[in-house]
């Protein structure tokens, strides 16, 4: 490699910033859809794990373990190439990426939800039943609002994980920020600048979201202590 001939040229960033940001919006989109799926899968698996039916709780347990153990990267290829070829389920790159993110995130969310539900003491349920609410009312009116407080900060952290994970969807051709960095540098031969900027944008994004989660955790923790 002729290293000496490479001149770092930050001008390329100025020029291609709109494209990079468009890529970023796709990253945000796919991670948001992935997160929505993760919330659904996660809640299903969490409720399943807490089920009194042994069969249901075992299956849910195994599903969580399975989804947690398989790398997102492998899932992505399995969904996009494996599933579509084998079962003729034709998914777009975006759909496949979001689904893989949803499966991985779902396993983590299942843990988060379970922790949240278990954090609400039995006494709260008993108190709800004692004033004449039915089971559904107790769950909606008493358990869920309390569980949500416990659940929100770790949920934000799961999202940060998915956002970071979402950077790999370009490998199946989703035109996210990394993908943009790749194809622009094919033209301009400035991968160093483009990846550096893309990396920095990600760091800023993940850190500000994590910081937000931290503040939220402190606030919710305080209000819980006062409640």
């Amino acid at each position: 490699m002729k290293t000496n001939s490479y001149k770092i040229d930050w001008n390329v960033i100025d020029k291609y910033m709109p494209e990079l940001l468009k890529g970023l919006s796709i990253t945000l989109e796919i991670s948001a859809v992935g997160m929505a799926l993760a919330l659904i899968f996660g809640l299903m698996m969490a409720v399943g794990r807490l089920s009194t039916n042994k069969f249901v709780s075992r299956i849910s347990n195994a599903a969580v373990q399975l989804c947690r153990s398989i790398p997102l990267f492998v899932l992505l290829f399995w969904v996009y190439y494996g599933l579509s070829l084998k079962f003729n389920i034709l998914l777009t790159e975006f759909q496949a990426g979001a689904l893989a993110l949803g499966i991985t995130g779902g396993a983590y969310m299942a843990e988060v939800f379970r922790g949240g539900l278990l954090a609400v003491s039995v006494g709260q349920t008993e108190a709800g039943l004692a004033i004449g609410l039915n089971k559904g009312q107790v769950f909606r009116g008493v358990v869920l609002p309390q569980a949500l407080r416990v659940v929100i900060p770790p949920t934000v952290n799961v999202y940060v994980g998915l956002l970071k994970g979402a950077t790999i969807v370009s490998v199946i051709g989703v035109s996210d920020m990394i993908y943009v960095a790749q194809y622009v540098s094919l033209d301009t031969f400035t991968p160093f600048e483009l990846y550096t900027v893309a990396g920095l944008i990600f760091v800023c994004l993940t850190l500000s979201i994590s910081g937000f989660a931290y503040l939220l955790e402190r606030r919710l923790g305080r209000s819980r202590a006062h409640g």
């Binding site: 970071k164 950077t167 790999i168 990394i178 990396g199 760091v203």
Partner: peptide, 9 residues
């Protein structure tokens, strides 16, 4: 804060 994919590239 940095994604592995970005950093390894």
């Amino acid at each position: 804060g940095i994604p592995l994919y970005v950093l390894v590239i």
